[in-house]
Simulated scan of single mutants.
Amino acid sequence: MLRHNTVKERLSGSGESYGLFCSIPSPALVEMIGCAGYDFVVLDTEHSLVDPQQLENLIRAAEAVDLVAFVRVPEADPGAILRALDAGALGVVVPHVRTRADLDAAIRAARYAPEGMRSLNGGRVPGFGRIELTEYVRRANAEIMVIAMVEDAEGVDELPAILAGGGVDLVLEGAADLSQSYGVPWQTRHPMVREALQRVHAECKAHGVPFCAIPRTREDHEQWQAAGVRTFVLGEERGLAARALRTHLDQHRGPTHA
């Protein structure tokens, strides 16, 4: 059933929010992320194979631990936006937003009239009738977030026009794909990439749209905080788990087996 979006509430105030990407479709992992104290999780259906029933159970796991669940959908897929929201997600992360038309299509799929034209449905999000349907439409438009991921040089250049039309709740940076777009794949700290991220943040600030950073180091985090950023994705659970496993083994195996 539709929950209150505490991340959106913090964006309107002064609080910070921290999240993780989650690519392994395991409800137990989602619960662990919530129990660890993160505020939100971005369930990845762009790069991961997640069937609709799995996704619904991942969202249920997030709800069980008061973790706000967003879903990163495949590029230019309004059907995926609809299914994610009907499963109970409190927002969608739309990858590769390059033009205002890309954002308009996502808004149309994610919001009910008069803001969009999301297909009407009942089911679990209105609590199987616990929320009156016209009231659900109103509350869904108020709670559900459209998060634009800017990860292409074209998107950086077009960002003033993208943001000018409104309708976006948060802009998430995508330094990895940005690096490829600028011809320096995986060089996320390259000067061109860093400058592009600063441009994205500046445009968001100019248009009053919150910006979400993905800091790679503690220094990155502190710099974004000093710039006024209050929403952060702190990586992905696969990378965190792999590093923790290697560190744990190294601590016991010792340098003689390196």
Rank of each mutant, 00 (worst) to 15 (best):
E154F: 03
L240G: 15
S23Q: 10
E132L: 02
D102Y: 07
W186D: 15
N57F: 13
I81K: 02
S181W: 06
A202Q: 13
V71G: 13
G239D: 15
Q53N: 11
A206Y: 13
I162H: 03
L249G: 02
V146Q: 10
E236V: 11
A101T: 09
S119L: 01
H257I: 08
R108W: 12
Y18I: 01
L29Q: 01
L172C: 07
V50K: 00
G34A: 06
Y112K: 00
A161L: 12
P74G: 08
D39I: 00
P78F: 08
S14P: 03
E132H: 08
F128M: 05
L159T: 07
A148R: 04
E46Y: 05
L178E: 06
K8R: 13
A175V: 00
V233I: 12
S14R: 00
A196F: 14
A62G: 14
V168G: 07
V150N: 09
L20D: 14
G208C: 12
G123Q: 03
E9P: 10
L103T: 08
A206C: 07
I24N: 10
G228F: 06
E16Q: 14
A226N: 04
R111P: 09
V146W: 12
A213G: 11
M117L: 13
F211M: 03
I33L: 14
L55D: 09
I59H: 05
G91W: 05
G239N: 14
R189V: 01
Q251C: 09
D66A: 10
L55K: 02
F211W: 04
V30P: 11
A140E: 14
G79D: 11
G165F: 01
E158G: 09
M149W: 10
R194F: 03
G91A: 05
M117C: 14
D169P: 00
V233L: 15
